[in-house]
Amino acid sequence: MDVIISNASGQPIYEQIFTQIKNNIISGRLKEGDALPSIRVLAKDLRISVITTKRAYEELEKAGYIYTVAAKGCFVAEKNVEVIREERLKEIEEHLKIVSGLAANCNLSDGEIYEIYNLIKKEG
């Protein structure tokens, strides 16, 4: 599993860990039941704070991506189709917000946007 911590991104470190592990799970690189490195091992390997890593794992657990077995560690949870769909919907919404902003900037009508969208789909 790749986890790259960037100091330049401005994104809090716990968010960086959260997003990257989440993406590893959604993309299927981490499979259901796979063991995650323990909080301490990951923190020490990445040379980041244990507390921060713990916060990221807690967020992942809250969001349903992983679960904890006492004294055993953390594992990738069963892929919840609904959760992932919800996640994707949110992403699409974000992108559409940008599109709508850009469209307003240059007076593009909704019809023209649909046209572009259809074109993209056709080209596949």
């Binding site: 809090p12 470190i13 716990y14 040379r47 980041i48 704070s49 244990v50 507390i51 921060t52």
Partner: peptide, 25 residues
């Protein structure tokens, strides 16, 4: 590079004792 917590003592007084990443955020 390595601390989880940073404590800052200035002129004999504790200014803060805080998680490093929280300070950076």
């Amino acid at each position: 590079k390595i601390c989880d917590y940073i404590a800052f003592i200035h002129k004999g007084k504790l200014v803060f004792c805080e998680e490093k990443d929280r300070l950076l955020d």
